[in-house]
């Protein structure tokens, strides 16, 4: 007797749980030959709101973790992805990638996790500074995470674009609300499962699937989102940037080939940092006088 295959329900990821969209809507995701791969959640404004609440709640705990511990956790994501390589590739192939392209994307994504895991306890030392001032002050600048960051992930890569933005944002101590690629949504939900089993606290990463045209307004105007990273070419770009001024969100647009070597680097972390400068009164140090 033939066995009936058990199919996975692709749900969204909010606050460390996998709910269906609050709206109850779905859209069909088709393979290359028009075969139905899955019904994917078509998230609504309320899902965005719930995700932001979860991300805000998780922010304190995540940003206060030691840099070293954050690095360990991000490394753990890479470990988990390595173990599920086959599944990630299979899904990309089902969604239309060639085998070679799928393998390249998955391996590069894993490497990118390792890359940013390494940066966690190092970027502070690079971007912070002790500043020379003309008075008896010890003057120093440190970087702090921006807060809750919205990521409108790349539409053309199922995994790589998302990982390439999510990881530096997490490395810097931010929490994230992600709108995944609409046409390649399966990989992003599998990634959510991987993150869920990687000691990343619930709420630090929230992944939604859906239509940017419907959600752009909510993402860009939400007063509790502190920065927005757009990695998609869309007619809405100008509108999104304008809306971000409502609460002076930081807005970054990355139109990139994420497979490129230049698509990783320190500035993806430092874009989502705020700089705090402290003037600490001191007596003269070592005869250096006011010029210290």
């Amino acid at each position: 007797m033939g066995r009936l295959e058990v199919l996975k329900t692709y749900k969204i990821y909010i606050g460390g749980a996998f709910p269906r969209t609050e709206s109850g809507r779905t859209y069909p995701l088709h393979g290359k030959k028009g075969d139905l791969l899955a019904n994917i959640c078509l998230s609504s404004r309320k899902d965005v709101r719930n995700a932001v609440v979860a991300a805000r709640k998780a922010f304190g705990g995540w940003s206060e973790k030691t840099a070293f511990n954050r690095g360990q956790i991000l490394y753990r994501i890479a470990e988990m992805m390595e173990g599920r390589k086959a599944q990630l590739m299979e899904e990309l192939v089902a969604m239309g990638f060639t085998k070679v392209a799928a393998e390249k994307e998955v391996l590069l994504s894993i490497d990118r996790c390792i890359y940013y895991a390494g940066w966690c306890d190092k970027y502070q030392a690079v971007v912070s500074s002790v500043n020379p001032v003309a008075s008896a002050h010890f003057n120093f600048t440190v970087a702090e995470p921006t807060g809750v960051v919205a990521i409108i992930a790349d539409e053309k890569t199922g995994l790589l674009g998302l990982v390439s933005l999510l990881l530096p944002i997490l490395a810097g101590g931010n929490t994230a609300v992600v709108l995944a690629s609409q046409s390649l949504a399966m990989s992003s939900i599998t990634l959510a499962e991987i993150i869920h089993s990687s000691d990343v606290p619930g709420g630090v990463v929230n992944i939604l699937t859906g239509d940017l045209n419907e959600l752009a307004e909510t993402f860009s105007t939400h007063m509790d989102i502190n920065a927005l990273a757009l990695s998609r070419s869309t007619d809405l770009k100008k509108k999104i940037a304008e809306n971000c001024t409502v609460n002076v969100k930081r807005f970054f647009s990355y139109d990139k080939n994420w497979a490129d070597a230049s698509a990783q680097g320190l500035h993806f972390i430092s874009d989502f940092q705020e700089y705090k400068t402290t003037w600490h009164p001191i007596e003269k140090i070592g005869g250096a006088g006011g010029g210290y």
């Binding site: 965005v48 709101r49 932001v52 805000r56 909510t218 105007t221 939400h222 007063m223 509790d224 409502v246 609460n247």
Partner: peptide
């Protein structure tokens, strides 16, 4: 206002 607010305000 139609936009979601934040506890910051």
């Amino acid at each position: 206002t139609g936009i979601y607010s934040s506890a910051d305000y």
